[in-house]
Write a protein that binds this DNA or RNA. Structure first.
Length: 723
DNA sequence: AGCACGCCGACT
DNA sequence: GTCGGCGTGCTC
């Protein structure tokens, strides 16, 4: 930082820019600068007719070979006020780009706040000044959150907030965290107090090292406000910054700068936050680490959880950086790593303060009246709970009123005109909506194919369950004699800004007795008076073609069950039985036996045995080559050509690879685009990586050839989570 | 990816 | 006679 250099020292720099790999440009482009620049510095450079933000990746004191020095254009502007991005940050981004087979520039520039591209050096300097002068503050979230605290100078976080006593389990885990050097898998039941462990781990760290920073990842944006509130309460709002796509561009820049400058000691965020610039990063927490949201599904398809482990290791080369992966139902990959001793497993089996684990009640649909949406015993149980002033949660993973409308006379179905999927019937506005492309139309008066007036919904969604429950519970009464109140919580009912918060507080205030919702309700929200959780339509998770479906179902049900019985005092006072009801046609399925015992280890062991015998992840490594085209044949032909090219060139790693035939995706056509993919599998991660590395230039070349004609897009997905 | 250049159809 | 369609091609 305090390097002495001559006042005028020209240099040559390799600058990384937001150009996709498809552009045929290398990882970096060379420029010259009249002044000496630092690696990691931000610059503005010309590219063709444009002026782009770039990151200085390498500085040379000699002009580069191979390029005519005259052809080099000069750096236009340097963001001198901004400290350069650290070497560790650059290594992280290099790794991510290489591992996930994307251009470095695309990944690295996407990791910066978008607004940075629009500012010039002077404007940025003003922002930095403002930030320094005021002391960084997150500010009050629109939906409540922590109020603006008094302006305090930046460091010296004060933890005056009363701290809860630690359970013996929590204390033991924190003691173990002091020792370990490996990634930690914190296997803790819902309600066992994992968040308090995160808070204490961060607190210990921040007290010990006055500049250390901690990064806390959560799977969903919805979960950030409540976590932010807890961290702000403990550490003060000026210490905490959040990074997720829900921020305004200005907020995102401000929070990013706070992290980059070291003013923010705690950074909370969704998967994108794994790329935050954190010069003194010493702790990374990945909460609900099993959640598939950590895997990006567009652009660079990175796994924030896997990168967290890599990043902690990388940072540890210079100073200890701990990574904690927390879950009640860890990803099988993480569980396997713990079994192998690569991760240290710390277990918190009990719920704090005597909170009870729900008992599983399986409702055998074979024994129930046909076509019933909610079996009579479950309905009775819901009424009974409401009568006692207890709340229930009803889970159904389908938005809308019914997944499809059908004509009984001719067999017409409400298909989306642009996708190979049904348009979902939403009764609220009498619309048919495609959940894949967003296409919406009005429900026709009669069958568009035959004119029959008898078109009817088939199957059930959350809207219908809400409606039926309201009808069926119309006679039921609450302790105060009032009617039972049913509400719905899903992506549709929370579209308006702040409405999620509103729904949740209604639930907290006891203004709702039965809450119907999608998996959204199962995640993280800390309801106090719930004593019953019911899963309605779970069987698809038992026999799906996706081998990860059981894992997801188990996690969802256990997580949902964890919403119940969190308030031990309430449960005891009510003398309530805390229960998880599941409606199924297959009550004898082994998944339910493990679920009944809340026995994730047994479930994981059984799943891992299956995976091992079938040589599936985590016992093998996978990648997908995906292709999009106007016709399915074009997409598949390109994939086939890609396979042929790999075999013809005898690429490295090929001998240890299985290349499967191209297949259409489950939803084959979306918004008029046909999609196909090809699975690659290898017992060796290095072999797969070597292969992909060598394959990529061939794929770029292939695009230009006849086989690539008509191809719209292609992408590689390394370690895919959904096939 | 942008953004140019570039060559063919319906409008002020 | 221009505006504009998106097909190749280039960007240190």
């Amino acid at each position: 930082m305090t390097e002495l250099s001559p006042p005028i020292a020209a240099c040559w720099v390799e600058v990384v820019l937001a150009t996709p790999a498809h552009s045929g440009l290398g990882d970096s482009l060379s420029y010259w600068s009249p002044e000496r620049l630092q690696e990691g510095a931000l610059v503005r450079v010309p590219l063709g007719a444009r002026e782009l933000l770039g990151i200085v990746w390498r500085v040379r004191l000699q002009p580069p070979e191979g390029l005519l020095p005259d052809s080099l254009r000069p750096v236009l502007e340097t963001f001198a006020a901004l400290p350069p991005l650290s070497a560790n940050w650059r290594v992280l981004l290099e790794f991510a780009a290489r591992y996930y087979q994307r251009a470095l520039g695309e990944v690295a520039l996407a990791a910066l706040p978008p607004q940075l591209r629009e500012l010039d050096a002077a404007a940025l300097q003003r922002r930095l000044k403002k930030l320094e002068g005021a002391g960084f503050k997150v500010g009050a979230a629109p939906g409540g959150g922590p109020g603006p605290a008094a302006l305090e100078p930046s460091p010296a976080p004060s933890w005056a907030a009363p701290m809860p006593d630690l359970s013996p389990e929590q204390a033991a885990v924190l003691a173990a965290l002091e020792q370990g050097t490996q990634p930690v898998l914190l296997f803790g039941a819902t309600g066992s107090g994992k968040t308090e462990v995160y808070l204490r781990a961060a607190q210990t760290l921040l007290q010990r090292d006055p500049q250390a920073q901690a990064l806390v990842l959560v799977p969903e944006i919805n979960l950030t406000p409540q976590l932010e509130a807890r961290f702000c309460e403990r550490f003060g709002a000026h210490t905490v910054a959040s990074l997720h796509s829900g921020l305004t561009p200005a907020q995102r820049l401000r929070h990013w700068l706070a992290a980059h400058s070291g003013q923010a000691r705690i950074v909370l965020g969704t998967r994108m936050a794994i790329f935050a610039s954190l010069p003194r990063l010493r702790l990374i927490v990945v909460d609900e680490e099993h959640d598939p949201s950590y895997k990006s599904q567009d652009g660079a398809r990175y796994s924030a959880r896997d990168l967290a482990v890599y990043r902690a290791q990388l940072e540890s080369r210079t100073a200890r950086c701990q990574v904690i992966l927390g879950s009640a139902t860890p990803a099988l990959e993480s569980w396997h790593a713990a079994e192998q001793g690569r991760y240290q497993r710390l277990h918190m089996p009990g719920r704090i303060a005597g909170a009870v684990l729900p008992r599983l009640r399986l409702l055998d649909l074979n024994q129930q009246p046909k076509q019933c949406l909610i079996a009579p015993p479950l309905l009775a149980a819901l009424a009974e709970r409401a009568a006692r002033g207890e709340q229930s949660l009803v889970l159904l993973n389908r938005r809308g009123y019914a997944p499809v409308l059908a004509c009984h006379a001719c067999g017409w179905k409400s298909d989306c005109p642009h996708c190979s999927a049904h348009a979902v019937f939403h009764k609220i506005d009498r619309s048919l909506r495609c959940h894949h492309c967003g296409h919406a139309s009005h429900v026709p008066r009669a069958c568009p194919a035959c004119g029959n007036l008898d078109i009817a919904p088939v199957g059930r969604g959350t809207e219908q369950v809400e409606e039926h429950l309201a009808e069926l519970l119309a006679e039921a009464r609450r302790p105060d004699g009032g009617p039972v109140r049913v509400a719905r919580l899903d992506a549709d009912s929370t579209r308006a800004k702040g409405s999620l918060h509103q729904r949740l507080s209604q639930m907290h205030e006891g203004e709702v007795d039965v809450l119907v919702g999608t998996q959204m309700v199962a995640k993280g929200h800390d309801f106090r008076r719930i004593t019953l959780v019911a899963g309605l339509n779970v069987d698809s998770g038992l026999f799906s073609s996706d081998y990860r479906a059981p894992e997801r179902l188990f996690a969802l049900l256990l997580q949902a069950a964890g919403r119940a019985g969190r308030d031990a005092a309430f449960v005891a006072a009510q003398q309530a039985a805390v229960e998880l009801w599941v409606q199924t046609w297959y009550p004898q399925h082994p998944l339910f036996a493990a679920l009944a015992r809340h026995d994730y280890p047994a479930f994981a062991a059984q799943q891992l045995r299956e995976r091992a015998s079938a040589q599936m992840p985590p016992f093998s490594f996978q990648a997908l080559l995906r292709a999009e085209a106007r016709s399915q044949a074009t997409a598949q032909a390109w994939l086939q050509a890609a396979q042929a090219a790999a075999q013809a060139a005898d690429l490295p790693g090929l001998a240890q690879l299985t290349l499967y035939p191209p297949l259409p995706l489950t939803v084959q056509r979306v918004a008029g685009v046909e999609r196909a993919q090809m699975l690659l599998e290898s017992p060796s991660r290095p072999a797969l990586q070597a292969f992909l590395q060598a394959w990529q230039p061939l794929l770029h070349a292939l695009r230009r050839q006849p086989a690539g004609r008509g191809l719209l897009r292609w992408a590689i997905d390394v370690d895919p989570v959904s096939l």
